[in-house]
């Protein structure tokens, strides 16, 4: 069984390396929790993101809570959540107190410029992996295209898209209708 302290430390480490929103954390979760430790499957991770999308709260925290719960129930959930928020608490308070003037430092800005590009590349790479695994049936392609199109042209919210895709599950297959 995975220890609570171990869960806390793992999510603390992932919190440090998450630059940006919850999606920036996805590649790290995929590598640490799915590939390296096999705590959850890739499909489960995607499901946590879909549910985290429609429930209140920060997506990264929601995903962490789900994984923590799967590992150790309520205790695991709390350890994972506290782990993922702890680095923010320490780093942001430090910045607010003393480091504020250093944030304008040119060298630091250049480093962040590079980091932002790798965050973009990591997200694209993760999408590619997940696409190959989960978009297989004809209806998957249709749902994917419809979801992307609805966001692109109508600016639908993420939560609404997920709910619509859930509804699409009950549209019967055309081939089956013909029989």
């Amino acid at each position: 069984m995975v220890g609570l302290w171990q869960i806390y430390c793992l999510f603390f480490k992932m919190g440090i390396f998450t630059f940006g929103g919850g999606y920036a954390m996805l590649p790290i979760l995929q590598s640490e929790v799915v590939r390296k430790r096999h705590y959850v499957t890739e499909d489960e991770l995607l499901d946590y993101y879909s549910i985290g999308q429609c429930t209140p709260g920060i997506i990264a925290v929601n995903a962490a809570s789900f994984i923590g719960y799967k590992l150790r129930g309520l205790g695991g959930l709390l350890s994972a959540t506290l782990g993922v928020i702890s680095p923010s608490l320490v780093i942001i308070v430090l910045i607010a107190m003393v480091l504020r003037q250093y944030m304008d430092n040119q060298y630091l800005q250049w480093m962040f410029g590079g980091i932002r590009i790798s965050v973009t590349a990591l997200i694209i790479n993760t999408v590619w992996d997940m696409w190959r695994k989960s978009v297989v049936r004809v209806r998957d392609y249709i749902v994917f295209a419809a979801a992307f199109g609805l966001m692109w042209c109508c600016g639908l919210s993420a939560a609404l898209i997920v709910l619509l895709a859930a509804g699409a599950a009950f549209i019967p297959d055309i081939r089956r209708l013909k029989k």
Binding site: D43, S50, T126, M130, F144, A147, F148
Partner: peptide, 12 residues
């Protein structure tokens, strides 16, 4: 059914 939509969201 939701998974492909979430992948689209992440790509977006």
């Amino acid at each position: 059914s939701i998974r492909p939509a979430v992948i689209a969201l992440i790509l977006f």
